[in-house]
Design a protein around this nucleic acid. Sequence first.
DNA 1: AGGAAAGTTCAGTCAAGACTGAATATTCAT
DNA 2: ATGAATATTCAGTCTTGACTGAACTTTCCT
Lengths: 160, 160
Amino acid sequence: MSPAADNSSAMDDGPLVEDFGQRIGRAMGWPPMAGRLAGVLMLSPAPMTLSELQATLGASKGSASEMTRLLIANGTVERVKVPGVRQAGYVWRDDAWSGCLQHQLHQTEQLLELARTARERGLGMPEAQQARLRDMYTYYDFMVGQLRRLLDEYQQLHAG
Amino acid sequence: MSPAADNSSAMDDGPLVEDFGQRIGRAMGWPPMAGRLAGVLMLSPAPMTLSELQATLGASKGSASEMTRLLIANGTVERVKVPGVRQAGYVWRDDAWSGCLQHQLHQTEQLLELARTARERGLGMPEAQQARLRDMYTYYDFMVGQLRRLLDEYQQLHAG
DNA sequence: AGGAAAGTTCAGTCAAGACTGAATATTCAT
DNA sequence: ATGAATATTCAGTCTTGACTGAACTTTCCT
């Protein structure tokens, strides 16, 4: 956090952070800046304030704020407040990856929902087409069930 | 295919196809047009030619061509050729969804690779940061393993 | 072989969406 | 309560990437 935050040890993770940014960001469907932010926070030894993040990323205040909120919403970052210190700190969560998995599950659930309505709307169609829609439903149904299981399993492993 | 392809039964799946397009396309990281194409082919009773697709989608020739190739590369669509007929037909594959899962696995493998190099590059860092990079590696390692398993399992179920 | 139909490529145009920054709202030490 | 520090919002700008269409290459019937 502000007073003691000497990030000298993190010097020149730049390229690494950029890679993270581009690739994880894209994989998660985030804007690039969110990925870079994730990279920075993942490698920061201490919580960072908004303005430190802004400076490190070379981003605007608005961007830093919005991307931070996005990562919080996705469960990878946590906001910590120290009483007596005005500005909040942001940290990479220990259970960040379980948050990612949860996110993936959620997305898949949306598609299952889509498949369900599609199957219903397809009831008047010839059998061949209905079969296609049924396949889709079956697939997403399978995936949702399995991802739920994976999430459980991962959380078990990670609790110990 | 051309001569017999009377798509009248498919009339006004339009909205459904649009939904598919927007949502599946996005989920898979495809351009919207690829998603719409997937929707059209999934609901088509017979193989469709490039120009039929172009007309149905209201797209350009170039777009129809490139999006078709993209779906083929992703394993959801197949190109069928009938000798004596010049133009090729395009069909939604029966094992399309297993192709999607394969794609997801492949993407995750890329991230595992990223995590692996990150972990190596982080060897000089303080323990706390190394732990973060190890977590990331552990996560993707877990996911790759599990997705491989899921792919197997899904293919089993779908063979019968 | 010849050439017309089919398919691909890619430079250019256009639209979606990421980022900025200044205006606005909120917070909290005093 | 007050106001200075902190954070959010959003209209406008700029970047990225999707789509078009015409020029080019390939295919394969005759």
